[in-house]
Design a protein around this nucleic acid. Sequence first.
DNA 1: CGAGTTAATTCGATCCTTGAATTATGGCTA
DNA 2: TAGCCATAATTCAAGGATCGAATTAACTCG
Lengths: 407, 407
Amino acid sequence: MQMRRTVRDLRRHNRSVLLSSLYLGEPQSRQDLGRSSGLSQGTVSNVVGELIEEGLVVEAGLVDSDGGRPRTLLRVNPDYAHIVGVDVGETGTRVEVFDLSMRPLATSYHPLPSARPDPAAVVAQIHEGLGEVLREAAVPTDEVLGIGVGVFGTVEQGREATVHAQTIGWEAVPLERMLRTGTALPIYLENGAKTLGQAELWFGAGRGVQHAVITLVGSGVGAAVISNGAISRGVTSSAGEWGHTCIVFDGRACRCGSHGCLEAYVGAEAVLDRWKAARGGRAVPGTDEQTSLAELLSDGGEVAERVLTETAGYLGAGLANLVNLFNPERIVLAGWAGQALGARLLPEITAAAAERALRHPYGQTSIQLGQLGVDAVALGAATLPVADLLARGAAPDKPSARLDAPA
Amino acid sequence: MQMRRTVRDLRRHNRSVLLSSLYLGEPQSRQDLGRSSGLSQGTVSNVVGELIEEGLVVEAGLVDSDGGRPRTLLRVNPDYAHIVGVDVGETGTRVEVFDLSMRPLATSYHPLPSARPDPAAVVAQIHEGLGEVLREAAVPTDEVLGIGVGVFGTVEQGREATVHAQTIGWEAVPLERMLRTGTALPIYLENGAKTLGQAELWFGAGRGVQHAVITLVGSGVGAAVISNGAISRGVTSSAGEWGHTCIVFDGRACRCGSHGCLEAYVGAEAVLDRWKAARGGRAVPGTDEQTSLAELLSDGGEVAERVLTETAGYLGAGLANLVNLFNPERIVLAGWAGQALGARLLPEITAAAAERALRHPYGQTSIQLGQLGVDAVALGAATLPVADLLARGAAPDKPSARLDAPA
DNA sequence: CGAGTTAATTCGATCCTTGAATTATGGCTA
DNA sequence: TAGCCATAATTCAAGGATCGAATTAACTCG
């Protein structure tokens, strides 16, 4: 039960409502805003005036009517600020700068030095990448709204976010504090699966949806659960570990230490393992997981097809569980392996899910492929500072960008 | 993104905050309220004055201080209104009246005439029970805040709530409209597992917790997921169908038509089936499910123990899935079979869950037995009108109960 | 070029919260 | 028993926000 206090919070909230509507929707006139928000014309005019004066919103053309003053369309000013998105993946670190409309302006990528990287090395890479992209895009630091970081492992939010990644030996790594040593910019840390989910929610296959699950199938398996338009985090932000739900009681061993996890059946590594086993132990073709999976998908032989059919069954069962537990409007199959498998097997996968889910909630769900590709982790990370901007209705500090307004 | 509008919504919201704090917490003074809500003394005084004038809140004694004016404690007036809670279960219909503090005043129970009851028959039973309990408790209709109904099956909220219950052939039954024909009181319809969850959340094992899952194990298996202090519903309110998540890929047939559902392993009926199979097909002792399960728990023989150990394993795996997906602070094992199994097997169950859940989220969760028993479905149903009262900060219509206040 | 139409702004009325000052209510001590 | 002190609760002017009606702005059409 959050508490609102003074009449000023009202204004903050209404700014937030209008700003969000402009950012997430199409350009709108003041009239449209009034109708959709329920605010009176006068108030909309007033608030919008403030936003324009601060440079957050700009007028964007007129739409002519058949007689009558044409409405002026409004949209968020893409040049109001820039945002940095960072994707700390299992193989490397990608840093990107965006303008406020999420157009990418510059990118940098550094592969990780080892499979079990030292946190300090990762932090150094991020700082380095940050300098590179800001220089390349010629963005001064004080025009950056904030830095969003999507990282593998569990991010525990608190006074200072910490990262847990059992598989590579990170235990309560104070990544936020470590990052702060190299920059004064606001830092937002979040699990990579969740940032990708946020990206698909705002700009991809989940647009406009209030209840969704964005699944992420790569070598590992995860999910971002969106409930009432917001990501579910649970008490220590580790909700959504779909990959480690048990789907075959006492089944195949999983790298998490348990048995029968979904990841141990549909994660890319697991799929290839099962293929290898089905080939009587003969190594699978391909030089890395991605090419091997491509080989499997194009093999066409009886053994490969059987492995794929089984995979579709397991994945369908996993999706059916999501349908039954969360009753979402939409399920998005994302992640490199998910996209690859889905491109070929989506009919089989949805059929397997339909067979196992309860009829009624299944009928309310559409299962789609992700639209943004894997790079979307950095994009999603960059949405974190923006989400904060929208929620506050204003940038944290900058009091007002322009002072050349009439007195 | 809900939109607040005028400055009056502010007042409504602050009323709601103070009222909720008084209802859900201990009696508090105006000072305490100010501190916990962040509102100024003056506003608290003002709002509380209104609430007292309307009869919603009463002063409840003084607490003396060491020198200085003693604070007057405030609490919600238990006699401000009454609430009716209805439990439409698979075997019968229970109707109860409560005062606002949820003290039960009268109860009525009608067993269902058949295993596949006609909706009209159920509605007639409810109306009948409603008349009975109001008469017995001598509560006039206009003192009833509303009727909460917890019903088996899925309740789809919309303009008018409808009920889907695949297993007994109810398809989009317009129960709310049917109930309205017999009474003018506000009606709140919700799935029974969710109302029980609400009861445990407010008054039982989930008190004060923001992220919880209340599981309900009876003949069927369900759950209520509480996220940020509120029940998760999903897009058509059918979220939480934990019983029909797949836990053994292509395992035992479930009555939902799928295979390997959790319910097909740990639902009371399924447990007894497995016991029967383990006895080589010999019927199990006991006249009904409840007594049979009690026999199983007290049998002590090797076969029975094996069945119980397996049950603990399956249930633990199901709970581990909840831990991984929802990252709750607390999991409550409720429902008659859940309570019975848990009373004896909780250590085994939690051990099985610990073995399968991710270490970090599991460490954040405590798994407990339900505290309220099965009758809590009606209690939870009765909380629905109260929750609405708290959210609005006032009763929907009644403008002001007392007019004998000073001008 | 003026009438008609629709968009946006302006401004007084109303409502709410804050924060300081004031009033209320008790214990303690001389 | 009277007066002082401490704490609780109320009162009230100031500041801020929204609404709604009236006004001003901008454009089309005949």
